[in-house]
C-alpha cells in the first residue's frame, strides 16, 4: 500500500503537495465536526425556527425570563469590566516589576480554567455566605454578597479572570520601550505616557480579553448557581432557567431562552468587534 499517491480528485481540490493524508484527515475532521457539533447545534436553530418569532417572543418577554437575561448579561458585563481593570493591572505588574513569587502567581492565574466550576461555586459560597470567611465581616456593613446579584458578579469575575491577563500580557511584553523613552524625552510625564502611548497599544488586546471574558461569563452555570441563591426575578440566571424548563419537559421554552441568549451574545460580540475595528483604524490613521 502506498499512501503517497494522491488521487486525481484530491489533486483538483488543492495545490499539489507531496504530503499524504489530505483526504483521510480532512474527511475525518469534517465528519467528526458535523456529528458532534454542527448537526446537534443546527437542531437548536431548527427547533427555534419551528417556534417562530412570535413563539420565541412569547417565552422571552415573560418577566421572569427578562429578569434572568438582564442578570446574566449585566453580571457578565460587570465581571468582565472588573477583570478589564484588574487584569490589565496584573499584566502590567507581571511584565514590568520584579517581586518574589512572581512565577507562582503567574501559574496561579490560570486556576479558574483548571478548577471545575462546581468546586469554584461552593468555595466562593463558603467565603461569601453571611456566616462565611469574608461574608461575616460584610454582613454587619449591610453588604450581602452570596444569595444576591452581587454573588453572581463575584462568580463571573472569578471564572473570567484569566482572559484579560492572558491577552494583555504578551502585548505588553512586546511593546517597544523606545516609544516610552521617546515620549519621556519629548517632555511627557509618566501618566501622559501611560495613557497616550501604552494604553492605545494594549487597547485592542484589552478589548479582545474583555470579549472573551464576557462570552465565558454570560454562559456560565456551575460556579454561579451555588452562590446566587437562585431566587426567581432576583438572582436567577438565564442558563438555570433553561434547565428548569427542561426539567418541566418544556423543550420549546428552553430552546427559546437558549436562542435569545445566543442572539443577544452574538449582537453584543458584533458591537464589541466593531469597537475593536474602530480603535484599530483610529490608531492606524494617526
Amino acid at each position: 500500500m502506498t499512501s503517497a499517491a494522491p488521487t486525481t480528485r484530491a489533486r483538483a481540490l488543492r495545490p499539489r503537495s507531496a504530503i499524504p493524508g489530505f483526504g483521510l484527515t480532512l474527511g475525518f475532521t469534517l465528519l467528526y465536526l458535523s456529528l458532534i457539533v454542527l448537526i446537534p447545534l443546527a437542531g437548536v436553530f431548527l427547533k427555534s425556527a419551528s417556534l417562530g418569532w412570535e413563539g420565541i417572543w412569547h417565552v422571552v418577554s415573560s418577566p421572569r425570563v427578562v429578569a434572568a437575561l438582564k442578570l446574566s448579561f449585566g453580571a457578565a458585563l460587570i465581571g468582565a469590566g472588573i477583570n478589564a481593570v484588574f487584569g490589565t493591572l496584573v499584566a502590567w505588574v507581571f511584565v514590568r516589576y520584579q517581586f518574589p513569587g512572581k512565577r507562582f502567581f503567574d501559574a496561579a492565574i490560570d486556576l479558574p480554567f483548571a478548577l471545575p466550576t462546581a468546586v469554584a461555586g461552593i468555595a466562593l459560597t463558603a467565603l461569601y455566605a453571611p456566616n462565611g470567611w469574608i461574608g461575616q465581616y460584610l454582613e454587619p456593613l449591610g453588604i450581602k454578597v452570596a444569595y444576591s446579584p452581587l454573588g453572581v458578579i463575584v462568580a463571573c469575575t472569578f471564572i473570567s479572570l484569566p482572559f484579560v491577563v492572558r491577552t494583555v500580557q504578551p502585548v505588553l511584553e512586546e511593546a517597544e520601550k523606545e516609544l516610552e523613552e521617546a515620549a519621556a524625552s519629548l517632555g511627557a510625564n509618566r501618566w501622559q505616557t501611560i495613557t497616550r502611548v501604552i494604553l492605545p497599544t494594549v487597547l485592542p488586546a484589552l478589548i479582545t480579553g474583555f470579549t472573551l471574558a464576557f462570552a465565558r461569563a454570560v454562559g456560565e452555570y456551575g460556579s454561579i448557581i451555588f452562590i446566587a441563591g437562585n431566587l426567581p426575578m432576583v438572582s436567577e440566571i438565564a442558563p438555570l432557567l433553561i434547565i428548569i424548563k427542561l426539567e418541566e419537559f418544556d423543550y420549546a421554552g428552553a430552546t427559546a431562552v437558549a436562542a435569545a441568549m445566543l442572539v443577544l451574545s452574538f449582537l453584543l460580540l458584533l458591537v464589541i468587534n466593531g469597537l475593536q475595528i474602530w480603535t484599530r483604524s483610529r490608531r492606524n490613521r494617526k
Binding site: 437542531g43 462570552a215 454570560v218 456560565e220 441568549m261
Partner: peptide, 25 residues
Amino acid sequence: LIDLPFSVSPVVAGLIYVLIFGSHG
C-alpha cells in the same frame, strides 16, 4: 467552526443533546 463549542454555554451544549435524544426529541 472548531472553536465554536467554546462560545456555546455549557447548558446549551447539554440542551442540544436533549433535543435530539430526549423522550420528546
